[in-house]
Each structure stands twice: as structure tokens, then as C-alpha cells.
């Protein structure tokens, strides 16, 4: 399946069911990570239950050093 993640198209083998599976496939620890799916914030408690579909736009953000 293809997803647009942080502005780039990424292709995944097989189907990822939900946000949790996607983060695992991206090798991202969900601590201190926020996800936006097609423009809406997905809260952590819903990572397991929020489905991702082919063509979805996903933003994965976290903290960096900053003033």
C-alpha cells in the first residue's frame, strides 16, 4: 500500500491495518510522537483502532531542540 508520509510517498508491503502498525513499520517509538491523518489529529489511545487506507496522508511529528 502507498501512503504519503511527511510529504513523501512511501510504499509498504502488504496492508498496514492501523496507526500502531504504521509506526512500527516506520520504526518509530510512539512516545512523544503525534500523528495527523488526513489533517486530523489522532490521539495515542486511538492509534490501535484508527485504520489507514491506501492513499492516506499522514504526518508524524515529534520534538526537537528549539527555543
Amino acid at each position: 500500500m502507498k501512503l504519503k508520509i511527511n510529504g513523501e510517498i512511501k510504499e509498504f508491503e502488504g496492508n498496514l491495518k492501523n496507526i500502531s502498525e504504521l509506526l512500527k513499520a516506520l520504526n518509530v517509538n510512539s512516545k512523544f510522537v503525534a500523528v495527523e491523518l488526513n489533517g486530523s489529529v489522532v490521539y495515542k489511545e486511538n492509534f490501535e483502532t484508527t485504520e489507514v487506507k491506501d492513499g492516506d496522508k499522514v504526518e508524524v511529528v515529534s520534538f526537537v531542540g528549539g527555543g
Binding site: 511527511n6 510529504g7 516506520l26 520504526n27 518509530v28 512523544f32 510522537v33 503525534a34 504526518e59 508524524v60 511529528v61 515529534s62 520534538f63 526537537v64 531542540g65 528549539g66 527555543g67
Partner: peptide, 28 residues
């Protein structure tokens, strides 16, 4: 204070790990 940015999947920012969120009041 910290900033929020897109996660870089190849080279994650190491700053985050060096900030103790239990010790400091982190202000995004």
C-alpha cells in the same frame, strides 16, 4: 522549550532523548 517537527525516519533528532521530561517542565 522544545520545537515540533516532522520525524526524520532515517536520522531522528537526538535532542529529545537528552531532555528529561520528568525533571523539567517542557514547554513546546
Amino acid at each position: 522549550t522544545v520545537a515540533l517537527r516532522r520525524v526524520s525516519f532515517d536520522s531522528p533528532d537526538p535532542t529529545l532523548k537528552a531532555i528529561d521530561f520528568d525533571k523539567y517542565i517542557v514547554l513546546p
